[in-house]
Simulated assay, not measured.
Amino acid sequence: MFAQGTPLDLTYSFPFYRFSWLRRLSHSPTHSFEIGLSLQIRNAQITFADRKGDLLREEQDIGPVPAFKVRLHRSIHDSYWIGLEADGMYAPVRYINGSDSDVEGAILDASLRAGRDLEQLPGAVYLNLRYLGGGAEGTSDPGQFGDGYTENWLHFLILTLGMQAHVF
């Protein structure tokens, strides 16, 4: 479709919304442990366009991504604490939905947080290290423009210094 050497504008967009449910298994004044499930609705959009505007190839796929969830919180000393929260899933698609697609996918959104509760204000300050990654590899239904093979893995590491306020 695109001649070799054609200048392209590329877009890879993967916005998502996630809904989670947690069940508290352990709770005390010094720690808590929760496990549960998440459902992520993702909208994958990949666009290739030549810079003249004559050729365009776009693929879009909206779909659900189920995941497992865990959350831990532990007080360390006085008003200091650490926490971990993670949503993750590995999916060999062929075995999950019985299709002929030989695609494997995964997501992991893991956050490690350390903080201190504030005495003067109802809230806390914290330092958060978050890994957000995932992708897919394999061959699904061949389309009009290709053989159906995809390999896309994204890895992000985010460091945040933040403050949270307890309003209610």
Rank of each mutant, 00 (worst) to 15 (best):
M1Y: 11
F2Y: 13
F2K: 12
F2G: 15
Q4N: 14
G5Y: 10
T6K: 09
P7S: 14
D9R: 10
P15K: 08
F16I: 03
L22Y: 10
S28K: 04
S32G: 04
F33P: 00
E34D: 08
G36D: 06
G36W: 00
Q40L: 04
N43Q: 09
A44N: 13
Q45M: 07
D50R: 06
R51D: 15
K52S: 15
P66D: 02
V70P: 03
R71S: 11
R74E: 10
I76H: 07
W81Y: 13
A86H: 02
G88L: 03
A91V: 02
P92D: 08
V93T: 08
G98K: 00
S99A: 06
D100E: 13
S101W: 14
G105M: 09
A106W: 15
I107V: 10
D109M: 05
A110P: 03
S111A: 04
S111K: 09
L112C: 03
R113Y: 05
A114D: 05
A114Y: 07
D117H: 11
L118C: 06
A124I: 01
L129V: 13
R130A: 12
Y131H: 14
G134M: 05
E137P: 01
D141T: 15
P142V: 04
D147I: 15
G148S: 13
T150W: 14
W153R: 11
L157W: 15
L161F: 13
V167D: 00
